[in-house]
Computed example of a mutant assay.
Amino acid sequence: MTSLINVEAILDRLCDDLVVRIESAGVDIKQVGLIGIRTGGVWLADYIHKKLALPSPMGELDISFYRDDFTRIGLNPTVKPSSLPFETEDRHIVLIDDVIMSGRTIRAAMNEIFDYGRPASITLMALIDLGRRELPIQPDLVGEVMTLEKNQQVKLTGPDGLKVQLKAAP
Rank of each mutant, 00 (worst) to 15 (best):
A25G: 11
D16M: 10
K51L: 09
T105S: 01
I63H: 01
M125H: 04
S56F: 01
G36R: 10
R133Y: 10
I137V: 13
I63P: 00
L124R: 01
M58D: 01
L44H: 04
Y116H: 13
E112L: 08
L162Q: 01
T105R: 00
R132H: 14
G36L: 06
L11A: 07
I128A: 03
L135R: 02
L130T: 09
E144K: 15
E89H: 15
I137L: 10
I10P: 08
P159D: 10
A108P: 00
S121W: 07
L14Q: 12
I63M: 00
E134H: 04
L4K: 11
M110K: 08
R118V: 13
V19E: 12
T71I: 15
I29K: 11
H92F: 10
L95Q: 00
R13V: 10
K155C: 13
D115G: 07
Q31E: 15
L148F: 13
S56Q: 14
G74A: 06
D115T: 05
D97N: 05
D62G: 04
K51V: 10
T78V: 15
R104T: 03
P139T: 07
S83K: 15
A169G: 03
K155E: 15
S24R: 15
S102C: 06
H49F: 02
S24P: 03
G143V: 03
I96Q: 03
L127S: 09
N151L: 11
K163F: 09
A25T: 04
E112C: 08
I122E: 04
L156D: 06
G41Y: 05
I37C: 00
E144C: 09
Q138P: 08
V142F: 01
V79P: 11
L162N: 09
D129H: 04
E87V: 12
L95E: 00
D62P: 03
L34W: 00
R67K: 04
K50W: 12
Q153K: 13
S121G: 07
I100S: 01
